[in-house]
């Protein structure tokens, strides 16, 4: 069966905190899913600041994947998300295929996990710090490994990097390897002024993400697409849905307005009775 999120608007990875911060503003109401910040097997302290800077119509973002690690997430964050009844997608990255398999096995059976989203190419880490999945066949190996480790029914999303030349090849490869949907696009590879790697996200990326959605939908009509890239309000959500996306993630907009996703949901529901 083809994947469709419960409702069309989701919170993008890394932009919703642990979920609790958004809930303070009723920011999770009516969402089709919450994607966690990227988790790794072991805790990561993250980079010292600055980590997030303004760029015109965007953010240059590089936390160094600060996260509490799998054990702490399962003990302290997941139960709360499960209690909210919101479909939770856990964003993952790992250093080896074995680590990916272990993460998939433990998360796939954890109560409250709807699916996982693979952060295949974190733009804010130097190449080599995690499993190098820039080549389509490597991305497919990760997807295949995690697919095999997940129980049936656990959704597997693959978030693809912004590499226009390899986009279709990568999308086809991860689909064949077992991804239920692709998330387009990841933040663009960028840099802080001091040369540290970072990702550029935000409304500046919207036209690029839209192009990627159109191209993948045209070439691979059987592959569901979730759009991620610069959507800030209901108008953007509508544009991505019209382009054929089954869901739209809202990310950077939440840093500017924690109610952005919930407002888009409310506006969408008002118009589609």
């Amino acid at each position: 069966m083809t994947f469709t999120p419960a409702r069309p608007v989701l919170v993008a990875s890394g932009c919703g905190g642990t979920g609790r911060e958004l809930a303070a503003y009723d920011g999770l109401d009516g969402l089709g899913g919450f994607v966690t910040r990227t988790l790794t097997l072991d805790p990561r302290p993250g980079h010292p600041g600055p980590r997030v800077l303004e760029s015109p119509s965007g953010f240059v973002h590089g936390t160094g994947l600060q996260n509490p690690g799998l054990d702490s997430f399962l003990a302290r964050e997941l139960p709360w998300l499960a209690a909210q009844g919101i479909p939770t997608y856990v964003s993952l990255t790992a250093a080896t295929l074995g680590e990916y398999a272990g993460l998939g096995r433990r998360l796939g059976t954890a109560p409250g996990v709807t699916g996982v989203e693979l952060n295949l190419v974190p733009p804010d880490l130097p190449v080599g710090e995690v499993y190098d999945a820039r080549e389509p066949f490597q991305a497919a190996r990760v997807v295949g490994t995690v697919r095999a480790s997940l129980p049936p029914g656990c959704v597997l999303l693959a978030k693809l990097g912004a590499d226009p030349a390899r986009l279709l090849e990568t999308a086809r490869a991860v689909h064949e390897a077992g991804a239920d949907a692709v998330v387009l696009l990841h933040a663009l590879p960028a840099s802080f002024d001091d040369g540290r790697p970072a990702g550029l996200g935000g409304p500046a990326l919207r036209p690029m993400a839209l192009r990627a959605v159109h191209e993948v939908r045209a070439a691979l009509p059987d592959l569901p697409v979730i759009a991620s890239g610069g959507a800030v309000d209901v108008d953007d959500v509508r544009v991505f849905l019209a382009a054929g996306a089954v869901g739209v993630q809202i990310g950077s907009a939440l840093l500017h307005d924690p109610t952005a996703a919930a407002r888009a949901v409310a506006a969408l529901e008002e118009e589609t009775p």
């Binding site: 919703g16 911060e21 958004l22 910040r37 010292p48 980590r51 997030v52 939440l254 840093l255």
Partner: peptide, 23 residues
């Protein structure tokens, strides 16, 4: 950057009650 705890963009190095340093 966001001031609401979403972006993890304002790290401060502290020592917790457990004696472990963290951001």
């Amino acid at each position: 950057p966001c001031a609401t705890g979403l972006c993890h963009g304002c790290p401060v190095p502290v020592v917790g009650e457990d004696g472990v340093g963290r951001l």
